[in-house]
Each structure stands twice: as structure tokens, then as C-alpha cells.
């Protein structure tokens, strides 16, 4: 019983990271109908920024909450900037081109970030020394690290902030209007370019935060390719929840994390990375709109 509970906790914690990344996919898809393949690589970038800030300023010698927040904010800011730059340089010129053109461009940007990362950062795995003490103590038979608690709490906090932005600000209203109908939104006087730029900034900042927290609190080795799988899985999570739907992305991310944790703990553990794709194919076949999404009928 405790084993299952432990896996459930690990799953929810991983799921919260998937949810943070998936939100970025779903928001960009909502406004542009574009699968931003490079989103997983923004997550990777967040981890690398954290690595260079921590080792460059030797922050790990004085672990504190202040240092942690500083690194988090720097990672988010750099990732937001990168996201905006990618949109400006690669996606904006082809916004009116056929959707497959945009998709090929997105694949190209993703590859460029990965392989550019290999050239700039080097292909050798890097390990971030911790900036915040995180101990693992058994609590009632369960192993929960402080890092896990912080990650989960931070994800919930980010989601609440995001919900506030999307539901209660002018920018959020603009984003929702654009996702209904981009042309009508433009006719209503909404600055579409600005809203899209902000969408990219917001989504990329969340991915950057996810990358920074994973790199800081888990013992994962960061490489330029380490955003690829989490990125694709987060995309699957967004599809599972219903792409374009923000609560759906969160739900899909958490479900994804839980399913993976249980598969990882079972005899099928070597197939862990393939399970996401099986879920994807099953969802696309049975309910292409996702759990919370609604089916879109193609009009002639």
C-alpha cells in the first residue's frame, strides 16, 4: 500500500513539472495553432541557465532561500527572452503560411537549440550543486524530500498566478479572444502581436522554472538533449487534457506523471519512455479532443 502511495506522490510531483511545460504548449497552440516543438528545449535552457548562474556565482556555497529565488527568477527571465526571440525571428515571418510550414520550422528551431546547445554547452552531462538544502526523511513510511514539496508548491503557485493572469487581466482576455478567432480579435482592436509575444514569454518562463527546479532538486544530469523527452511528454499531456485548454494541460500533466510513475514501478519499466506515445495514440484515436477539450468539426 505504502509503495503505491509513494509512487502516487512521485507521480504527482513529476506531473506538476509536466503540467508547467504543458501549459506553455497549450497556450501557444491556443493562439497560433502551432505545436511549438522548441518548448522542451526552453525547459533545457532553463536548467542550463541555472547551472551557469549557480556555478558562476558559487551560490552553492551558501545555500539559502534567497539564492534559490534569485536563480529561479534569472532562469525564468532568460527563458522568457529566448521564447520571445524565437517567436520574433522564426514564427512571426511565417504566421500566415500553411500550418505544416510552421511545424517544419518549429522542428528546425528545436533541433537548432539542441545541437546549438551541444556546441555551446558541450555534450557532457552536467550536475547542479544544490542551492537549497533538501533532505529526504521518512515521514510515516513515505520518502518525501523538501525539494519535492517545494516543487509541488511552486507549481501550484504558478498555476494560480497563471489563472489570475488569463482570467482577470486585459492581456488574459486578449489571449482568450485570440484563441477563439484571431481575425475577429484583431478587428476588435486587440494588439495581436503583443499578446502573442506575451504568450510566448509567459509559457517559456514557466518551462524555464520547471527546468530550473528539476535540475536543482533532482539528481538528473543535464545535457542539451534532456529537454527532448519531457517536452514531447508534456505535449502528450496537453493533448491528453485537450489542447488549447489550460486546466486540461494541468490535468493531463498530472495524469501523465502518475501513469509514468506506476509504469516505472512495474515490470514494464523499460518501456517507460514509450508509454507516453501509446497514451497519445490511444487518446488521438478515442477522443481526439482530449479529456476537457471539445471535438472540433471541420467545416468546408
Amino acid at each position: 500500500m505504502e509503495v503505491y502511495l509513494q509512487q502516487l506522490i512521485n507521480g504527482v510531483q513529476y506531473g506538476s513539472i509536466y503540467a508547467l511545460i504543458a501549459v506553455g504548449y497549450t497556450m501557444v497552440y491556443g493562439v497560433l495553432r502551432l505545436i511549438n516543438f522548441a518548448h522542451g528545449d526552453i525547459y533545457m535552457l532553463g536548467a542550463f541557465v541555472a547551472y551557469y548562474v549557480v556555478t558562476g556565482l558559487a551560490l552553492h556555497q551558501h545555500p539559502s532561500v534567497g539564492n534559490f529565488l534569485f536563480v529561479l527568477i534569472v532562469s525564468m527571465a532568460v527563458c522568457a527572452l529566448a521564447g520571445v526571440l524565437i517567436e520574433r525571428l522564426a514564427y512571426r515571418p511565417i504566421r500566415n503560411a500553411p500550418r505544416l510550414t510552421a511545424l517544419i520550422t518549429a522542428i528546425g528551431v528545436s533541433l537548432l537549440l539542441e545541437n546549438g546547445g551541444i556546441v555551446v554547452f558541450g555534450a557532457d552531462p552536467k550536475y547542479i550543486p544544490t542551492v537549497l538544502q533538501s533532505s529526504v526523511a521518512p515521514r510515516g513510511g513515505l520518502y518525501i524530500s523538501e525539494g519535492q514539496v517545494i516543487m509541488l508548491a511552486a507549481s501550484v503557485l504558478f498555476m494560480l498566478i497563471l489563472r489570475f493572469i488569463v482570467m482577470s487581466t486585459r492581456f488574459g482576455r486578449a489571449v482568450r479572444a485570440i484563441s477563439y478567432d484571431i481575425d475577429a480579435a484583431r478587428l476588435m482592436g486587440i494588439d495581436v502581436d503583443r499578446a502573442i509575444t506575451l504568450t510566448f514569454a509567459l509559457g517559456s518562463a514557466l518551462a524555464g522554472a520547471a527546468g530550473m527546479m528539476v535540475a536543482t532538486f533532482t539528481s538528473v544530469k543535464i545535457t542539451p538533449l534532456f529537454g527532448l523527452l519531457p517536452g514531447v511528454k508534456a505535449f502528450v499531456a496537453a493533448v491528453l487534457g485537450g489542447i488549447g485548454n489550460i486546466p486540461g494541460a494541468v490535468l493531463g500533466g498530472i495524469l501523465m506523471g502518475i501513469i509514468e510513475a506506476f509504469v516505472g514501478g512495474s515490470a514494464l519499466t523499460t518501456y517507460r519512455d514509450a508509454i507516453a506515445f501509446m497514451i497519445l495514440i490511444i487518446v488521438l484515436l478515442l477522443r481526439p479532443g482530449g479529456i476537457l477539450g471539445k471535438a472540433v468539426v471541420e467545416k468546408v
Binding site: 514531447v232 505535449f235 502528450v236 507516453a276 506515445f277 495514440i281 488521438l284 481526439p288
Partner: peptide, 26 residues
Amino acid sequence: PSLRLRGDYLAIATLGFGEIIRVTIL
């Protein structure tokens, strides 16, 4: 399955199939 999918969804599904094949061979 591609009968039911179009454009970018199909792209992702084929990507998924490719990965499933690779993990299975592995």
C-alpha cells in the same frame, strides 16, 4: 490510425510510432 488524424496531430502520432519502435527494438 492516420485516417483519423490530420496535419500536426498526424506528425506527432508518427513521431510517437517511431519512438515506440525504437524503444521496442532497444
